[in-house]
Design a protein around this nucleic acid. Structure first.
Lengths: 202, 202, 202, 202
DNA sequence: TCATAAACGAGACGGTACGTCTCGTCTTGTG
DNA sequence: CACAAGACGAGACGTACCGTCTCGTTTATGA
């Protein structure tokens, strides 16, 4: 769909191949959010992408792989990394943004779909893992800045701190289903900030 | 399989019904651990339980619900709550036990299956949520004891602390796939313990 | 669904299984005659039989096998063996009836479809072979009667004589496409009758 | 179909067009004999001919037509017409050569493939018909010589006699699958020779 | 004890989706 | 301009599993 029209100005390199790939991945993304992993059929994707099923299978060898690819493509977007000047502020802001994403209908559905997809096929797990790893890695600068400011010691474990901030939110989202609001963001940010700092001075 | 041999006098009014229910749930549990959610077919469960597929559907209206029930049944087991005498010790022990469960092939597959099942209907989501909530709630005494020992202030948020401990582990398990070992248990326990304590003294 | 209603009067032995089998084979036969082997899809058969595609595949493992079965079922029909009192008369009558069948639109399409089906899988070839063998074998009594009447010697090769009668007709039908009419029947019958008799007296 | 005639004016013997045409037809012939009609794919032909599929479709509009053309090209070969000096001898020799062709793996597959191809469209049927008609017509001189020798009357129906000779063999090959050997050749030759002669004297 | 309701075994079925295959067309770039 | 390369549309194929249905049989109680 994306670009059915020949796109005159489209200087050569963007041939049909690219157009097809793009529109299919887009359709995949959309349908993944609208329905879950199961209600999602390759035929639907194809027809929404204005393409035939066979074409999809020519490029992606299975439903799972298609989803993996679609997810991978959208992995670098929409993740503004806060820079408030203080560790606590940054952590709070980050937690809030995670919560905002997870709480929105789209974000929620998308996130669940990704998780479900990973649960369905071991093949996809790796793909999903790197998606999330990249996403979380983008927050590491927050810790690095805090180290530079002297708020945290140089040997701080950035990955651990980020995981500790985000983990409780995801646990609520995926497992316990307990309410998720900005207050949670503040409390968990405080806990983690305190922990990271205290661990330091130990 | 069929009947783990209750079979003593057999003249127990709850006879066959119970036997069927039990053996099916057991078969479900086993298969859930052996294969994942998708490789898992109701027909297989039935045949392993020595029962006909129709019988399964008479009692559980769908595959997901069957899994939900099977999971619920086994929910109270295997969760020894540590009591080492110190907050840090308890948290470390708890983290280790969570990790041990999640790291095993069986536990891993089971956990993923639960997640996948939850994705199948809002009803099941609620069911799964309460499963996890209960499971995590069992750890709350750890915090209460720490409060009594004076390691933590009375207004400590037990839920949050537990979630902060467990969250990072689950994030690695479900999302990033980073390695999970006992060292992680120690580091996250330390971070959370420090955070909870420090928050206190604030 | 042919007959969803319980069909009270339906005396037991004709269960659903039979009904399904019958209607599918019938639909197969019909479609085989209407279209050829290629324009023939299992889905079409299923839908005409009021049955779902999967059901067809449950009973017949492939399109070719389905056709083979359908053909086999109709193999014993419509083959009146002439008994005119003389060898020449019988051979002429038999040739005419073969020609009549082959010349009709239905018979022509059906015959071609059978040939085509046989060409599609070696497994089917055997099935088709026995179909034709049976069909031709039914004409053997013509020769036996001629022997009893003294028109032919006791060691006459019935199979050969029948094949010699029918062969030229099929060659025209399948290979050369030359016109096939009753005159041909007479000429070939005469030739074969003369040959069989002469061979005798040799 | 495309270009049956050698294209006289085209005197560029080394032309690419000719080369392509030749190699494709050759590959078609080979593959036709190696596999049957279905196991035969246009892609395979193209790749064996060292040519692209598109090129094949530029010249032959369909798989069936390609086969028809390939068959036509090879139609004039390998058909030595016997001349033994007697009608019976000629007929026996002819029957043996037909049997030899049909019995070989190559010949069998090729023949079946031709039949199957003919089933695909009326156009092809005509094409195949003339192929076989020509082939059989080549045997007519056998009868003519017999007439000249006085073995057969002048009004003998050559076509019929040839068909009567060949028919039974083809019936066994295509329909009943009964064994085909040289003994059959002798018996059928004898029957037909006797018949033709006797008919004469009638 | 025997009748009767409930649960079960057996097995086909409708239905949805999957992933595959091959045919024949169409696009894009190259010699 | 024909060709190579290769994606594409179309549509059938055969498979897997889900959840439903019917029919006959077993099992467990209550009159």
């Amino acid at each position: 769909m994306a670009e059915t029209e020949p796109r005159v100005g489209e200087q050569r390199p963007g041939g049909r191949a690219t157009r097809v790939r793009t529109s299919v991945l887009e359709a995949t993304s959309e349908l993944l959010m609208e329905m879950g992993y199961d209600q999602f059929s390759v035929d639907d994707v194809a027809s929404r992408a204005g393409v035939h099923k066979t074409t999809v299978y020519r490029r992606w060898s299975s439903k799972a792989e298609l989803i993996a690819d679609a997810v991978r493509v959208h992995s670098a977007e929409h993740v503004p990394i806060p820079d408030t000047g203080s560790l606590l502020g940054d952590l709070q802001a980050l937690a809030c943004s995670v919560i905002a994403n997870i709480s929105s209908d789209d974000g929620s559905r998308r996130s669940r779909a990704i998780i479900a997809a990973a649960a369905h096929s071991p093949d996809l797990t790796a793909s999903m893992n790197s998606f999330w790893a990249e996403r979380f890695a983008m927050s590491v600068p927050i810790i690095e800045r805090a180290v530079q400011r002297g708020e945290l010691p140089p040997d701080s474990d950035a990955d651990l701190i980020i995981a500790a901030l985000i983990g409780p939110i995801w646990v609520r989202f995926l497992l316990t289903g307990e309410p998720i609001d900005d207050d949670l963001a503040h409390r968990v940010a405080q806990l983690v900030a305190a922990g990271a700092t205290a661990t330091t001075e130990r």
